[in-house]
Simulated assay, not measured.
Amino acid sequence: MTSLGILYPGHAAEDDYPRIEQLLGSDVRLTVVHTDTAEDAHRVDALLDLGSAPRLAAGVEELRLSGAEAVLWASAGGSFVHGAQGAHEQVRALAMAAGVPASSTSFAFAHAAREIGARRVAIGSACPDDVVALFAEFLKETGTEAVAVRGSAAVTAAEPAGWDYDGVLALARAADHPDADAVLLPDTALHTAAHLTELEKDLAKPVLTASQVTVWEALRLTDRRVNAPRLGSLFTREPVIQA
């Protein structure tokens, strides 16, 4: 049994994680612990507070006691707004507190894009343009070029949490670009776990989503590789060796 710990901000699309646990069809257990959110808002100041050390520390002990072998901060916005260096310091502090390897959804996207050989990507997010631009900058700092960036008017996580497949697909299609090797949907508030194969079929290219890459990154930290076709190309492809 491989036990993975997920620190999830507030409540929105956390039910993606038990669904992913089922779709993995393996001896993997996902434990989700919720962190406190002072304000549900897609603003830089609110996201900086969301990923602050005191808020994350409150949930780490519970995950440590659960026997988690790796801990993931399941928030892209609560990570990339700190910049690449700040995000590194954030996960370093998590790892020290948990006593196990740690990472975040932001780094999961960077590593997953590299895994499937996606050097250029399109980003579609429910966050406003100024916030999504920070994610594009984060990816650039970590070696991935965003050739298209599409934000949304959603001001809270609660809004995209209610989107159905058509809403998620519309966001992905609006973000897609002919030069993009993959489409990235970085919102952990989006329900995507049930739709990954459909999204990739409709867009005819790999799609990386927040809950998907978060779990993949946690498995990576424990040196586990699970073949799970219903979780998209990321869980079926052999890793690409990049020069």
Rank of each mutant, 00 (worst) to 15 (best):
T35W: 01
R55Q: 13
A154I: 14
A98K: 01
C127L: 15
S66A: 15
A12I: 01
L48Q: 07
E198I: 09
A126E: 04
V240E: 03
A95W: 05
W73T: 07
L72Q: 13
E145I: 12
V60G: 07
E200T: 11
L203Y: 12
L94R: 01
L23H: 01
D176A: 06
T35H: 02
G5M: 09
L56Y: 02
P160H: 06
L4W: 03
P186H: 03
G51H: 06
F135C: 08
R29D: 09
R55G: 13
G232W: 01
R92P: 00
R225F: 15
S75D: 09
L7P: 01
G51Y: 03
V213P: 14
R120D: 10
V81I: 06
L23G: 01
A12D: 06
A53E: 04
L50S: 09
K205D: 15
F109M: 08
E141N: 10
A68H: 02
E198D: 15
A126C: 13
P160D: 10
M96S: 14
E137G: 07
H42E: 04
L56P: 01
A118Y: 02
R120G: 03
I123T: 14
D223A: 14
A122E: 10
R224H: 14
K201P: 00
Q22I: 08
V33L: 02
A180H: 10
G59V: 07
D129G: 09
E141F: 00
Q22R: 13
L56I: 08
R29P: 08
R119W: 08
A12L: 01
A161D: 02
H42K: 10
L4E: 06
L7Y: 02
G5C: 04
R230F: 13
L208N: 04
H111E: 13
E39N: 02
A210E: 07
A41G: 11
V213K: 15
E238C: 06
S79H: 01
V121Q: 08
L63T: 09
A243Q: 03
Q242H: 14
L221R: 11
G86Q: 00
S79K: 05
A97G: 02
L24R: 04
G167D: 07
A93M: 04
A12Y: 04
L50Q: 13
P101G: 03
H88A: 03
D187S: 10
I241K: 05
R43P: 01
A157I: 06
D181C: 10
S233L: 11
A70G: 04
F135K: 00
L7I: 03
H195I: 14
D202P: 03
R224Y: 06
A58Q: 12
M1V: 10
L139V: 06
L48V: 12
R92Y: 00
L47V: 08
L221E: 04
G51T: 09
S233D: 06
T2K: 08
S125I: 05
S104A: 04
D129A: 15
A193T: 07
V207W: 13
S106I: 08
L219Y: 12
Q242W: 12
L184A: 12
W73Y: 14
R237Y: 04
M96I: 10
D40W: 10
T2C: 00
L56E: 07
V213E: 10
D179K: 06
V81L: 05
L139I: 08
